[in-house]
């Protein structure tokens, strides 16, 4: 009887490890599966040529440009708003009802499914404001979606800057804003960058919010008012409409490699940042 809890422990432990192993295996399988079938399709031509016959042949160049344009637009709008919010929350106010409302708003926004962002962007930007399916509509919609991530990561980054930095700059007679721009923000920059890079990854992978706001035109965008197809949307259309499995695998491989690369970079940056201040 005395040995029984130990035996239970051994059994449970191996069961839990099996489940953990299975999880890792499934996740690794997904990446390997896509890369093994997709990477052989990827070549310089695939990345730099235009698609032919709706994507049956040729490359994915316009979708890469579309992805970059849309992501850039979203980041340019969301970063100032997100970092500004984080500065206000950490430096210019104290915890109270106001900060609770702001945080609750950001949390709710983070929980809204991307399809609702798509629905909203479609009705406001595409139809009401008559921006049409465009990089501008898609970028605005995406920026709303990534705003909570940027707020949260910037806030954490700014909070982790030691209080002594602020005290010293105050003792030197700096105003709050001087302390923020010359001391706090430069120290928090790696942490803030991490959040921005994570949001880039999220924007690149997003489909539901983008397809209804940026449209799915396959030509090269010429201005922020042109409709544009991102890699994720292109991949979705290729796979769902069965246009070309080969091209779908190729696009998926480019997508997955890009996103893994971005996430690894941001993970590395974050760890260097954490180590510096702890």
């Amino acid at each position: 009887m005395a040995g029984s809890p130990r035996r239970t422990q051994t059994i449970v432990k191996s069961a839990l490890w099996t489940l953990t192993g299975a999880t890792i295996l499934v996740l690794v399988f997904i990446v390997v599966f896509i890369l093994r079938r997709g990477l052989p399709e990827v070549s310089w031509g695939f990345l730099t040529r235009h698609p032919e016959a709706m994507g049956v042949a040729g490359g994915i160049f316009p979708t890469i440009v579309g992805t970059l344009a849309l992501t850039l637009m979203a980041i340019l709008i969301a970063t100032p708003l997100g970092v500004g919010t984080a500065i206000y929350l950490t430096e210019y106010t104290w915890e109270g009802r106001l900060t609770r409302v702001i945080r609750f708003g950001a949390e709710c926004l983070a929980g809204i499914p991307s399809i609702l962002f798509g629905l909203f962007g479609f009705i406001l930007f595409v139809t009401k404001l008559k921006l049409g399916w465009s990089i501008l509509s898609g970028g605005l919609t995406l920026s709303f979606m990534i705003l909570p991530t940027i707020i949260r990561t910037s806030e954490e980054a700014i909070r982790s800057v030691p209080a002594a930095y602020r005290e010293v700059s105050a003792s030197l007679g700096c105003t709050k804003w001087q302390a923020v721009t010359r001391v706090v923000l430069p120290s928090a920059l790696p942490g803030i960058t991490t959040g921005v890079i994570l949001s880039v990854g999220r924007s690149i992978g997003e489909t539901a919010a983008v397809i209804f706001t940026a449209g799915s035109a396959l030509h090269l965008p010429t201005s922020v008012f042109s409709s544009s197809r991102t890699m994720a949307v292109h991949f979705y259309i290729l796979a769902r409409e069965g246009i070309s499995m080969r091209m779908a695998y190729g696009t998926a491989a480019v997508l997955v490699v890009t996103i893994l690369f971005i996430n690894i970079v941001s993970y590395y940056l974050m760890h260097r940042f954490i180590r510096k201040y702890s």
């Binding site: 992978g205 991949f235 979705y236 796979a239 996430n263």
Partner: peptide, 15 residues
Amino acid sequence: VIELLAGIPSVVYGF
């Protein structure tokens, strides 16, 4: 490893 895979787009899971 688990966190990195949170970034995989939902279209890839669907595929």
